[in-house]
Each structure stands twice: as structure tokens, then as C-alpha cells.
């Protein structure tokens, strides 16, 4: 083979490589444009706005730098913000934990064979459709409706939590634990409604575990409980972090959260863009920190090593 033909071949291969790279960029071009125009710029813009006072005029808007005034206002002046923030975060921690446990248990059950499984699966996935957007907030959206909801709660004959409280009191739990338990129980519906996707993710993980592992464990005399902790749990733990992140994000994006409403109202009704941006950024940074901590904990334990 002559030097020339080798050169041509080399050249050709480079050509293909560059061409593939160009095609690749063409394919992801929509995303790049969208990301630069509708994500990066607004992101920087809103960060800038959170440090300034925004004035609106017919020809556009002007930002005047005012340092940390908006942030200081959010944390010290505004009566609701810090309270809402702490409420939201305690709620998110308890909710995520409850969602994980529930969806894992349900996924394990749904992985077994029994009559009516397709129906049950269909029902369990229904909330993914029905607990999004307007439907969540519909009943608590305006003050009138929430007062109705309160009235209905008091008068309804379906007082689940009260009877459960009575039972738990009798069983002699401490008051602190009792409160947490009662809190979780009264939120059960919420939790069930937001664990559709998580159940499916766990289910996928469970189906990918080979049966032979369980058979071997059974031969060696493992109980079901042991084989859960020694086989099932390690095998699906990479999905744990997926589910944690999904639950956290899902929770933050819910339209019925108090903070979201406050941010939106501050912007649309009071036109205080700077203050609204500052609150949104505090919120966003806290989400990132929370997700980061979760990811870190699971990496530390060596759990997330084998995911790609």
C-alpha cells in the first residue's frame, strides 16, 4: 500500500469523524439554541435581577444594583418567607422518605404474580396523569375553597386520621413520634398520589435482578428478609438515588406549593421582579444543595458506583 493511499484513507477517516461531529451538533442544535437563549440568559438575567431593583418602562426594563437588599428582605423583613421555606423543607424530607419506602414495598409486591395485577398496575400509575398541574391545586386554590375543604374535613364521616390517632395513643407511643406518624398518615394520600413513577422505576430494577440469585440464596438457607437486604436492596440502590432526585424535583415543581405561589404572585401581581427573583434563587440553590447532599451520601456508601 503506497503512502498516498494511506494518506487518503487517513484523510477520509478524519473527514467522517468531523462529519459525524457536525451531524451530531446539527441534531442537538435545537437544544443548544434553546439552552443559550431561553435558559442561560434568563438564568443570568434573573440572578442579576435578584441583586437589583427592577424598574419597568414602556421601552424595556432597567436594573439598578442594590446589593443583597432583596435577599435581606426575604429573610428578615418578609413575614412569610422563612417560615414557608422551613415548612417546605421538613415536608420534602418526610415526603421523600415516605415515597421511597412506599414505592419500594409496592414495587416488590407488584413484581409478584397474583390475580388482577394488570388492573392494579394501571390504577397505581393513574396518579401520574391525575396529580399534575391544575388538578392538585384545584381544591385549595382560592381561600373560599380551602375554607370549604376545612369545613368538609370537620363534617365528613371519613375521619381516618382521628381514629388512627386514637389507636396509636392506646398503643403507647411517645408524643413526638406520634406527631410524626400522624403527620405521615394524614399525608398518605399525597404520598400515594406522587409515587407513580417511582414505583415503575423500582419495578424495572426488580425485574432486572436474575432469579438465580434468589435461588442460590434460598439454597444457602437465606430467609426472605435476609435475601431482601443482601440481594434486592444492593441491586436496586442505584435506582434509589434516581428516585430521590425525581421525588425532590417533582415536589419542588408542584404548582400548589406555597412558595411557588408566593414567587409568582410577587411577580405577576405586585410586579416586584427583583424580590421575586431573589426568592426563586434562594429556593433553587437550596434544591441543588439538597440534591447534592443526597447524591453525596449515596456515593460515599459506594452505592452509586455501578451506574453509567
Amino acid at each position: 500500500m503506497s503512502q498516498l493511499s494511506r494518506d487518503i484513507r487517513k484523510n477520509h477517516r478524519m473527514n467522517i469523524k468531523t462529519r459525524r461531529a457536525i451531524s451530531g451538533y446539527l441534531f442537538i442544535l435545537p437544544f443548544i439554541i434553546g439552552f443559550l437563549v431561553f435558559m442561560v440568559r434568563p438564568l443570568i438575567n434573573s440572578l442579576w435581577m435578584s441583586f437589583s431593583t427592577v424598574e419597568i418602562s414602556p421601552s424595556g426594563f432597567t436594573n439598578t444594583w442594590n446589593g443583597f437588599a432583596n435577599y435581606i428582605k426575604a429573610f428578615t423583613v418578609d413575614p412569610d418567607f422563612t417560615r414557608m421555606l422551613t415548612e417546605e423543607f421538613t415536608k420534602i424530607l418526610t415526603h421523600t422518605a415516605a415515597i421511597l419506602v412506599l414505592s419500594l414495598v409496592v414495587a416488590i409486591i407488584l413484581n409478584q404474580k397474583f390475580k388482577g395485577r394488570p388492573f392494579v398496575r394501571a390504577v397505581f400509575f393513574l396518579p401520574v396523569i391525575l396529580s399534575s398541574g391544575v388538578l392538585v391545586g384545584l381544591e385549595t386554590n382560592n381561600s373560599l375553597m380551602s375554607s370549604i375543604a376545612d369545613a368538609m374535613k370537620k363534617n365528613s364521616n371519613f375521619q381516618m386520621s382521628d381514629s388512627v390517632v386514637a389507636i396509636l395513643r392506646l398503643s403507647g407511643l411517645g408524643a413526638g413520634i406520634l406527631d410524626i406518624v400522624v403527620d405521615i398518615i394524614s399525608e398518605v394520600q399525597d404520598i400515594v398520589m406522587s409515587s407513580g413513577i417511582q414505583i415503575i422505576v423500582f419495578l424495572t430494577g426488580l425485574q432486572s435482578i436474575p432469579d438465580s440469585l434468589y435461588e442460590a440464596a434460598d439454597m444457602e438457607g437465606c430467609t426472605k428478609w435476609e435475601s431482601f437486604w443482601k440481594i434486592t436492596f444492593p441491586m436496586i440502590s442505584p435506582l434509589l438515588i434516581v428516585n430521590i432526585i425525581y421525588s425532590v424535583i417533582d415536589f419542588f415543581m408542584k404548582t400548589d406549593s406555597n412558595i411557588m405561589n408566593k414567587i409568582r404572585d410577587t411577580m405577576v401581581i405586585y410586579l416586584d421582579y427583583g424580590f421575586s427573583s431573589a426568592m426563586a434563587w434562594v429556593y433553587f440553590v437550596l434544591v441543588i444543595i439538597l440534591i447534592g447532599i443526597c447524591a453525596l451520601i449515596f456515593h460515599r456508601r459506594g452505592v452509586g458506583q455501578d451506574h453509567v
Partner: peptide, 26 residues
């Protein structure tokens, strides 16, 4: 760029809504 996709998943739209709103207003 793929990290950017993940970022898009994580950023709550509320964070950028303010400035998107203004962006399309003007």
C-alpha cells in the same frame, strides 16, 4: 452539553420564569 440537559431537568422553571416573562414582554 449533556450536563446542561441535566441542569434543565433540575432548574425549577419558577427560577427563570420572572426573566422569561420580561424577555417576551419586551
Amino acid at each position: 452539553w449533556f450536563a446542561c440537559v441535566v441542569l434543565v431537568i433540575i432548574v425549577p422553571p419558577q427560577t427563570i420564569s420572572t426573566s422569561l416573562y420580561l424577555r417576551f414582554r419586551y
